[in-house]
Design a protein around this nucleic acid. Sequence first.
DNA 1: GTCTATACGCAGATAGAC
DNA 2: GTCTATCTGCGTATAGAC
Lengths: 205, 205
Amino acid sequence: MGTKKTSLTMIADEIGIKKPSLYYHFKNKEEIFNESVEYILGSMNNRLHDANKASTSSKEALEAVLSGIIGFHSDLSVFIGELYQKPVNIYPLLHEASYHFPELGLEIKNHYAELQEQLEQIIRRAQGEYVINQRLSPDSLALEIIAWLEGLILLSTFNPSLDLNTIRQKIFSNLWEMIGSRESGPSENTFRKKIAKTISLGTKW
Amino acid sequence: MGTKKTSLTMIADEIGIKKPSLYYHFKNKEEIFNESVEYILGSMNNRLHDANKASTSSKEALEAVLSGIIGFHSDLSVFIGELYQKPVNIYPLLHEASYHFPELGLEIKNHYAELQEQLEQIIRRAQGEYVINQRLSPDSLALEIIAWLEGLILLSTFNPSLDLNTIRQKIFSNLWEMIGSRESGPSENTFRKKIAKTISLGTKW
DNA sequence: GTCTATACGCAGATAGAC
DNA sequence: GTCTATCTGCGTATAGAC
Protein backbone atom coordinates (compact mmCIF):
# COMPACT_ATOMS: atom_id res chain seq x y z
CA MET A 1 0.00 0.00 0.00
CA GLY A 2 0.90 3.70 0.24
CA THR A 3 4.13 5.35 1.41
CA LYS A 4 5.97 2.47 2.95
CA LYS A 5 8.70 4.66 4.35
CA THR A 6 6.36 6.54 6.66
CA SER A 7 4.74 4.29 9.22
CA LEU A 8 1.60 5.01 11.20
CA THR A 9 3.74 4.95 14.34
CA MET A 10 5.86 7.81 12.98
CA ILE A 11 2.77 9.81 12.08
CA ALA A 12 1.16 9.18 15.45
CA ASP A 13 4.34 10.10 17.35
CA GLU A 14 4.67 13.30 15.36
CA ILE A 15 1.22 14.61 16.19
CA GLY A 16 1.40 13.30 19.74
CA ILE A 17 -1.20 10.53 19.81
CA LYS A 18 -1.07 6.74 19.79
CA LYS A 19 -1.31 4.69 16.62
CA PRO A 20 -4.84 3.29 17.02
CA SER A 21 -6.24 6.80 17.52
CA LEU A 22 -5.47 7.51 13.89
CA TYR A 23 -8.20 5.05 12.98
CA TYR A 24 -10.76 7.31 14.60
CA HIS A 25 -9.97 10.06 12.09
CA PHE A 26 -9.12 8.01 9.01
CA LYS A 27 -10.43 4.76 7.57
CA ASN A 28 -6.93 3.42 6.86
CA LYS A 29 -3.46 4.47 5.84
CA GLU A 30 -4.46 4.94 2.23
CA GLU A 31 -6.98 7.60 3.26
CA ILE A 32 -4.29 9.50 5.18
CA PHE A 33 -2.06 9.33 2.14
CA ASN A 34 -4.75 10.47 -0.30
CA GLU A 35 -5.89 13.40 1.80
CA SER A 36 -2.29 14.52 2.35
CA VAL A 37 -1.58 14.59 -1.37
CA GLU A 38 -4.81 16.43 -2.09
CA TYR A 39 -4.03 18.97 0.60
CA ILE A 40 -0.57 19.56 -0.85
CA LEU A 41 -1.88 19.91 -4.40
CA GLY A 42 -4.60 22.26 -3.17
CA SER A 43 -2.27 24.60 -1.31
CA MET A 44 0.18 24.62 -4.23
CA ASN A 45 -2.65 25.55 -6.62
CA ASN A 46 -3.86 28.32 -4.29
CA ARG A 47 -0.39 29.74 -4.12
CA LEU A 48 0.02 29.76 -7.89
CA HIS A 49 -3.37 31.35 -8.32
CA ASP A 50 -2.47 34.17 -5.93
CA ALA A 51 0.91 34.67 -7.58
CA ASN A 52 -0.58 35.07 -11.03
CA LYS A 53 -3.35 37.38 -9.82
CA ALA A 54 -1.05 39.76 -7.94
CA SER A 55 1.39 40.46 -10.78
CA THR A 56 1.08 42.98 -13.58
CA SER A 57 3.73 42.62 -16.29
CA SER A 58 4.23 39.31 -18.07
CA LYS A 59 7.79 39.08 -16.77
CA GLU A 60 6.58 39.69 -13.23
CA ALA A 61 3.83 37.08 -13.67
CA LEU A 62 6.25 34.39 -14.81
CA GLU A 63 8.67 35.09 -11.97
CA ALA A 64 5.83 35.17 -9.45
CA VAL A 65 4.58 31.74 -10.52
CA LEU A 66 8.07 30.25 -10.42
CA SER A 67 8.78 31.91 -7.06
CA GLY A 68 5.51 30.45 -5.84
CA ILE A 69 6.68 26.94 -6.68
CA ILE A 70 10.07 27.49 -5.05
CA GLY A 71 8.47 29.10 -2.02
CA PHE A 72 6.02 26.27 -1.65
CA HIS A 73 8.84 23.72 -1.55
CA SER A 74 10.82 25.85 0.89
CA ASP A 75 7.84 26.01 3.20
CA LEU A 76 7.51 22.25 3.03
CA SER A 77 11.22 21.87 3.79
CA VAL A 78 11.06 24.13 6.81
CA PHE A 79 7.86 22.51 7.94
CA ILE A 80 9.32 19.00 7.87
CA GLY A 81 12.92 20.09 8.35
CA GLU A 82 12.39 20.84 12.01
CA LEU A 83 11.90 17.16 12.60
CA TYR A 84 14.13 15.41 10.08
CA GLN A 85 16.77 18.10 9.39
CA LYS A 86 16.67 17.44 5.63
CA PRO A 87 14.86 19.38 2.91
CA VAL A 88 12.03 17.34 1.48
CA ASN A 89 11.20 16.93 -2.17
CA ILE A 90 7.54 16.21 -2.83
CA TYR A 91 8.02 14.81 -6.33
CA PRO A 92 8.78 11.25 -5.16
CA LEU A 93 5.57 11.46 -3.14
CA LEU A 94 3.58 12.64 -6.15
CA HIS A 95 5.24 9.99 -8.27
CA GLU A 96 4.33 7.24 -5.86
CA ALA A 97 0.81 8.56 -5.52
CA SER A 98 0.30 8.57 -9.25
CA TYR A 99 1.84 5.10 -9.46
CA HIS A 100 -0.38 3.37 -6.91
CA PHE A 101 -3.65 5.30 -7.06
CA PRO A 102 -5.09 6.13 -10.47
CA GLU A 103 -7.49 8.80 -9.16
CA LEU A 104 -4.64 10.66 -7.51
CA GLY A 105 -2.55 10.19 -10.62
CA LEU A 106 -5.28 11.93 -12.58
CA GLU A 107 -5.37 14.86 -10.16
CA ILE A 108 -1.61 15.20 -10.38
CA LYS A 109 -1.76 15.15 -14.16
CA ASN A 110 -4.42 17.86 -13.97
CA HIS A 111 -2.26 19.91 -11.67
CA TYR A 112 0.58 19.81 -14.18
CA ALA A 113 -1.76 20.50 -17.06
CA GLU A 114 -3.13 23.60 -15.28
CA LEU A 115 0.34 24.81 -14.43
CA GLN A 116 1.47 24.32 -17.99
CA GLU A 117 -1.53 26.18 -19.36
CA GLN A 118 -0.99 29.03 -16.91
CA LEU A 119 2.63 29.37 -18.02
CA GLU A 120 1.59 29.07 -21.66
CA GLN A 121 -0.76 32.04 -21.31
CA ILE A 122 1.92 34.13 -19.66
CA ILE A 123 4.39 33.18 -22.40
CA ARG A 124 1.95 34.09 -25.16
CA ARG A 125 1.34 37.44 -23.52
CA ALA A 126 5.08 38.01 -23.17
CA GLN A 127 5.64 37.10 -26.81
CA GLY A 128 2.91 39.52 -27.80
CA GLU A 129 4.82 42.21 -25.91
CA TYR A 130 8.09 41.11 -27.61
CA VAL A 131 9.58 40.17 -24.23
CA ILE A 132 10.12 36.47 -25.00
CA ASN A 133 11.82 35.03 -28.08
CA GLN A 134 9.05 34.48 -30.63
CA ARG A 135 10.76 31.48 -32.18
CA LEU A 136 10.04 29.40 -29.04
CA SER A 137 6.74 27.56 -29.12
CA PRO A 138 4.69 28.43 -26.00
CA ASP A 139 3.61 24.89 -25.17
CA SER A 140 7.09 23.39 -25.41
CA LEU A 141 8.60 26.30 -23.53
CA ALA A 142 6.04 26.04 -20.73
CA LEU A 143 6.83 22.35 -20.35
CA GLU A 144 10.56 22.97 -20.41
CA ILE A 145 10.38 25.74 -17.81
CA ILE A 146 8.47 23.40 -15.49
CA ALA A 147 11.08 20.71 -16.11
CA TRP A 148 13.92 23.19 -15.58
CA LEU A 149 12.52 24.33 -12.25
CA GLU A 150 11.62 20.86 -10.98
CA GLY A 151 15.05 19.63 -11.95
CA LEU A 152 16.61 22.47 -9.98
CA ILE A 153 14.47 21.61 -6.96
CA LEU A 154 15.46 17.97 -7.34
CA LEU A 155 19.16 18.83 -7.53
CA SER A 156 18.87 21.16 -4.53
CA THR A 157 17.64 18.23 -2.44
CA PHE A 158 20.74 16.24 -3.41
CA ASN A 159 23.10 19.11 -2.97
CA PRO A 160 22.52 21.15 0.21
CA SER A 161 24.90 23.88 -0.98
CA LEU A 162 22.51 24.60 -3.85
CA ASP A 163 19.97 26.81 -2.10
CA LEU A 164 17.38 28.02 -4.58
CA ASN A 165 16.22 30.86 -2.37
CA THR A 166 19.62 32.51 -2.32
CA ILE A 167 20.41 32.03 -6.02
CA ARG A 168 16.86 32.79 -7.16
CA GLN A 169 17.80 36.11 -8.76
CA LYS A 170 20.70 34.55 -10.64
CA ILE A 171 18.50 31.72 -11.88
CA PHE A 172 15.85 34.13 -13.11
CA SER A 173 18.32 36.38 -14.90
CA ASN A 174 19.83 33.33 -16.60
CA LEU A 175 16.35 32.24 -17.64
CA TRP A 176 15.63 35.63 -19.20
CA GLU A 177 18.98 35.60 -20.92
CA MET A 178 17.94 32.28 -22.49
CA ILE A 179 14.32 32.93 -23.40
CA GLY A 180 14.39 36.73 -23.75
CA SER A 181 13.42 38.21 -27.09
CA ARG A 182 16.17 38.63 -29.69
CA GLU A 183 14.22 41.12 -31.70
CA SER A 184 13.25 44.50 -30.44
CA GLY A 185 9.57 44.41 -31.34
CA PRO A 186 7.59 46.15 -34.07
CA SER A 187 8.84 49.61 -33.22
CA GLU A 188 12.30 48.85 -34.57
CA ASN A 189 10.94 46.77 -37.44
CA THR A 190 8.97 49.76 -38.72
CA PHE A 191 12.06 51.86 -38.12
CA ARG A 192 14.06 49.45 -40.30
CA LYS A 193 11.36 49.51 -42.95
CA LYS A 194 11.47 53.28 -42.93
CA ILE A 195 15.24 53.20 -43.44
CA ALA A 196 14.92 50.70 -46.27
CA LYS A 197 12.24 52.85 -47.86
CA THR A 198 14.38 55.94 -47.50
CA ILE A 199 17.36 54.18 -49.08
CA SER A 200 15.34 52.80 -51.98
CA LEU A 201 13.86 56.23 -52.51
CA GLY A 202 17.35 57.64 -52.29
CA THR A 203 18.79 55.34 -54.96
CA LYS A 204 15.91 56.18 -57.27
CA TRP A 205 16.81 59.79 -57.25
CA MET B 1 17.18 0.40 6.01
CA GLY B 2 17.37 0.43 2.22
CA THR B 3 14.60 0.52 -0.37
CA LYS B 4 11.59 -0.58 1.61
CA LYS B 5 9.41 -0.91 -1.44
CA THR B 6 11.48 -3.73 -2.90
CA SER B 7 11.49 -6.81 -0.69
CA LEU B 8 13.99 -9.64 -0.78
CA THR B 9 11.17 -11.95 -1.83
CA MET B 10 10.61 -9.82 -4.95
CA ILE B 11 14.31 -9.85 -5.78
CA ALA B 12 14.61 -13.60 -5.22
CA ASP B 13 11.50 -14.33 -7.32
CA GLU B 14 12.80 -12.14 -10.09
CA ILE B 15 16.14 -13.92 -10.47
CA GLY B 16 14.61 -17.36 -9.85
CA ILE B 17 16.08 -18.39 -6.50
CA LYS B 18 14.73 -18.59 -2.97
CA LYS B 19 15.05 -15.78 -0.49
CA PRO B 20 17.70 -17.29 1.85
CA SER B 21 20.02 -17.95 -1.10
CA LEU B 22 20.52 -14.23 -1.47
CA TYR B 23 22.47 -14.34 1.77
CA TYR B 24 25.09 -16.53 0.14
CA HIS B 25 25.90 -13.76 -2.35
CA PHE B 26 25.33 -10.68 -0.20
CA LYS B 27 25.88 -9.91 3.44
CA ASN B 28 22.51 -8.22 3.80
CA LYS B 29 19.98 -6.11 1.98
CA GLU B 30 22.03 -2.97 2.37
CA GLU B 31 24.87 -4.55 0.42
CA ILE B 32 22.51 -5.43 -2.44
CA PHE B 33 21.28 -1.86 -2.47
CA ASN B 34 24.75 -0.29 -2.37
CA GLU B 35 26.15 -2.47 -5.14
CA SER B 36 23.12 -1.81 -7.32
CA VAL B 37 23.52 1.95 -7.00
CA GLU B 38 27.24 1.73 -7.70
CA TYR B 39 26.58 -0.43 -10.75
CA ILE B 40 24.06 2.09 -12.06
CA LEU B 41 26.38 5.05 -11.46
CA GLY B 42 29.25 3.17 -13.10
CA SER B 43 27.37 2.29 -16.26
CA MET B 44 26.01 5.83 -16.53
CA ASN B 45 29.52 7.24 -16.24
CA ASN B 46 30.86 4.81 -18.87
CA ARG B 47 28.12 5.84 -21.21
CA LEU B 48 28.82 9.54 -20.78
CA HIS B 49 32.54 8.98 -21.24
CA ASP B 50 31.91 7.15 -24.53
CA ALA B 51 29.50 9.82 -25.72
CA ASN B 52 31.94 12.64 -25.16
CA LYS B 53 34.85 10.74 -26.74
CA ALA B 54 33.00 9.84 -29.94
CA SER B 55 31.83 13.35 -30.83
CA THR B 56 33.72 16.03 -32.72
CA SER B 57 31.99 19.42 -32.71
CA SER B 58 30.97 21.06 -29.45
CA LYS B 59 27.30 20.95 -30.45
CA GLU B 60 27.61 17.25 -31.22
CA ALA B 61 29.35 16.64 -27.90
CA LEU B 62 26.63 18.33 -25.89
CA GLU B 63 23.87 16.46 -27.68
CA ALA B 64 25.73 13.18 -27.31
CA VAL B 65 26.07 13.59 -23.56
CA LEU B 66 22.40 14.52 -23.18
CA SER B 67 21.35 11.67 -25.45
CA GLY B 68 23.48 9.38 -23.32
CA ILE B 69 21.54 10.33 -20.22
CA ILE B 70 18.19 9.91 -21.96
CA GLY B 71 19.29 6.62 -23.49
CA PHE B 72 20.47 5.33 -20.16
CA HIS B 73 17.10 5.98 -18.58
CA SER B 74 15.29 4.44 -21.51
CA ASP B 75 17.36 1.30 -21.20
CA LEU B 76 16.51 1.14 -17.53
CA SER B 77 12.82 1.59 -18.35
CA VAL B 78 12.83 -1.21 -20.86
CA PHE B 79 14.87 -3.40 -18.56
CA ILE B 80 12.47 -3.05 -15.65
CA GLY B 81 9.41 -2.35 -17.77
CA GLU B 82 9.14 -5.93 -18.91
CA LEU B 83 8.24 -6.90 -15.37
CA TYR B 84 6.37 -3.90 -13.98
CA GLN B 85 5.05 -2.31 -17.21
CA LYS B 86 5.94 1.21 -16.00
CA PRO B 87 8.95 3.36 -16.91
CA VAL B 88 11.27 3.76 -13.97
CA ASN B 89 12.99 6.92 -12.83
CA ILE B 90 16.25 6.33 -10.98
CA TYR B 91 16.35 9.71 -9.25
CA PRO B 92 14.17 8.64 -6.33
CA LEU B 93 16.55 5.73 -5.88
CA LEU B 94 19.60 7.99 -5.93
CA HIS B 95 17.82 10.36 -3.59
CA GLU B 96 17.06 7.63 -1.11
CA ALA B 97 20.59 6.27 -1.38
CA SER B 98 22.12 9.65 -0.66
CA TYR B 99 19.68 10.14 2.22
CA HIS B 100 20.39 6.90 4.07
CA PHE B 101 24.01 6.12 3.23
CA PRO B 102 26.56 8.94 3.42
CA GLU B 103 29.22 7.09 1.37
CA LEU B 104 26.77 6.56 -1.48
CA GLY B 105 25.64 10.15 -1.13
CA LEU B 106 29.21 11.24 -1.69
CA GLU B 107 29.54 9.09 -4.81
CA ILE B 108 26.31 10.52 -6.17
CA LYS B 109 27.50 14.05 -5.49
CA ASN B 110 30.73 13.21 -7.31
CA HIS B 111 28.78 11.82 -10.23
CA TYR B 112 26.90 15.09 -10.56
CA ALA B 113 30.06 17.13 -10.10
CA GLU B 114 31.77 15.19 -12.91
CA LEU B 115 28.80 15.56 -15.19
CA GLN B 116 28.61 19.25 -14.50
CA GLU B 117 32.32 19.70 -15.18
CA GLN B 118 32.06 17.72 -18.41
CA LEU B 119 29.21 19.95 -19.59
CA GLU B 120 31.07 23.05 -18.46
CA GLN B 121 34.06 22.15 -20.64
CA ILE B 122 31.83 21.56 -23.65
CA ILE B 123 30.07 24.87 -23.04
CA ARG B 124 33.36 26.77 -22.77
CA ARG B 125 34.52 25.22 -26.01
CA ALA B 126 31.22 26.11 -27.67
CA GLN B 127 31.43 29.67 -26.42
CA GLY B 128 34.95 29.89 -27.79
CA GLU B 129 33.54 28.85 -31.16
CA TYR B 130 30.74 31.42 -30.81
CA VAL B 131 28.13 28.65 -30.85
CA ILE B 132 26.68 29.34 -27.40
CA ASN B 133 25.57 32.72 -26.05
CA GLN B 134 28.61 34.22 -24.32
CA ARG B 135 26.54 36.06 -21.74
CA LEU B 136 25.62 32.73 -20.06
CA SER B 137 28.03 31.65 -17.35
CA PRO B 138 29.31 28.09 -18.07
CA ASP B 139 28.92 26.75 -14.52
CA SER B 140 25.35 27.98 -14.08
CA LEU B 141 24.40 26.87 -17.55
CA ALA B 142 25.83 23.38 -17.00
CA LEU B 143 23.82 23.05 -13.81
CA GLU B 144 20.68 24.34 -15.45
CA ILE B 145 20.99 21.99 -18.42
CA ILE B 146 21.30 19.05 -16.02
CA ALA B 147 18.26 20.30 -14.12
CA TRP B 148 16.33 20.84 -17.35
CA LEU B 149 17.03 17.30 -18.55
CA GLU B 150 16.35 15.62 -15.21
CA GLY B 151 13.15 17.59 -14.89
CA LEU B 152 12.08 16.38 -18.33
CA ILE B 153 12.87 12.79 -17.36
CA LEU B 154 10.91 13.25 -14.14
CA LEU B 155 7.91 14.67 -15.99
CA SER B 156 8.05 11.88 -18.56
CA THR B 157 7.62 9.34 -15.77
CA PHE B 158 4.48 11.14 -14.62
CA ASN B 159 3.12 11.65 -18.08
CA PRO B 160 3.37 8.58 -20.33
CA SER B 161 2.46 10.64 -23.39
CA LEU B 162 5.68 12.62 -22.96
CA ASP B 163 8.17 10.27 -24.60
CA LEU B 164 11.61 11.85 -24.62
CA ASN B 165 12.92 9.54 -27.32
CA THR B 166 10.35 10.68 -29.85
CA ILE B 167 10.57 14.39 -29.04
CA ARG B 168 14.34 14.38 -28.59
CA GLN B 169 15.01 16.39 -31.75
CA LYS B 170 12.41 18.99 -30.81
CA ILE B 171 13.87 19.31 -27.32
CA PHE B 172 17.38 19.78 -28.66
CA SER B 173 16.39 22.39 -31.22
CA ASN B 174 14.53 24.28 -28.50
CA LEU B 175 17.61 24.10 -26.32
CA TRP B 176 19.79 25.56 -29.07
CA GLU B 177 17.23 28.25 -29.74
CA MET B 178 17.56 29.22 -26.07
CA ILE B 179 21.29 28.97 -25.50
CA GLY B 180 22.55 29.54 -29.03
CA SER B 181 24.84 32.49 -29.65
CA ARG B 182 23.24 35.86 -30.43
CA GLU B 183 26.37 37.27 -31.94
CA SER B 184 27.92 35.96 -35.08
CA GLY B 185 31.46 35.50 -33.83
CA PRO B 186 34.66 37.17 -35.00
CA SER B 187 34.58 35.64 -38.50
CA GLU B 188 31.51 37.59 -39.55
CA ASN B 189 32.61 40.61 -37.58
CA THR B 190 35.78 40.83 -39.67
CA PHE B 191 33.61 40.26 -42.73
CA ARG B 192 31.51 43.24 -41.70
CA LYS B 193 34.60 45.26 -41.05
CA LYS B 194 35.86 44.37 -44.53
CA ILE B 195 32.58 45.52 -46.02
CA ALA B 196 32.75 48.73 -44.03
CA LYS B 197 36.31 49.20 -45.17
CA THR B 198 35.38 48.57 -48.80
CA ILE B 199 32.53 51.03 -48.58
CA SER B 200 34.66 53.65 -46.97
CA LEU B 201 37.29 53.10 -49.67
CA GLY B 202 34.56 53.33 -52.25
CA THR B 203 33.30 56.61 -50.92
CA LYS B 204 36.84 57.89 -50.85
CA TRP B 205 37.28 57.43 -54.57
C1' DG C 1 25.15 -23.02 -4.03
C1' DT C 2 20.64 -23.58 -3.03
C1' DC C 3 17.32 -25.24 -0.25
C1' DT C 4 13.73 -25.88 4.22
C1' DA C 5 12.70 -24.46 8.67
C1' DT C 6 12.46 -21.09 11.79
C1' DA C 7 13.34 -16.81 14.77
C1' DC C 8 12.14 -12.19 15.66
C1' DG C 9 10.50 -7.53 14.83
C1' DC C 10 7.50 -4.17 13.06
C1' DA C 11 3.98 -3.06 9.87
C1' DG C 12 -1.25 -2.14 9.45
C1' DA C 13 -5.48 -2.94 11.56
C1' DT C 14 -9.41 -4.20 15.09
C1' DA C 15 -11.90 -4.80 19.74
C1' DG C 16 -13.27 -2.94 23.54
C1' DA C 17 -12.28 -0.11 28.11
C1' DC C 18 -12.28 4.69 29.80
C1' DG D 1 -11.42 10.86 21.25
C1' DT D 2 -7.86 8.40 23.00
C1' DC D 3 -6.18 4.62 25.08
C1' DT D 4 -4.34 -0.73 26.04
C1' DA D 5 -4.25 -5.18 24.33
C1' DT D 6 -4.00 -8.09 20.67
C1' DC D 7 -4.26 -10.16 15.87
C1' DT D 8 -2.25 -11.21 11.41
C1' DG D 9 1.06 -10.77 7.79
C1' DC D 10 5.39 -9.73 5.85
C1' DG D 11 9.92 -8.09 6.44
C1' DT D 12 15.05 -9.35 7.36
C1' DA D 13 18.05 -12.68 8.86
C1' DT D 14 20.17 -17.25 10.59
C1' DA D 15 20.94 -22.44 11.20
C1' DG D 16 21.62 -26.34 9.23
C1' DA D 17 20.27 -30.21 5.61
C1' DC D 18 21.29 -31.63 0.82
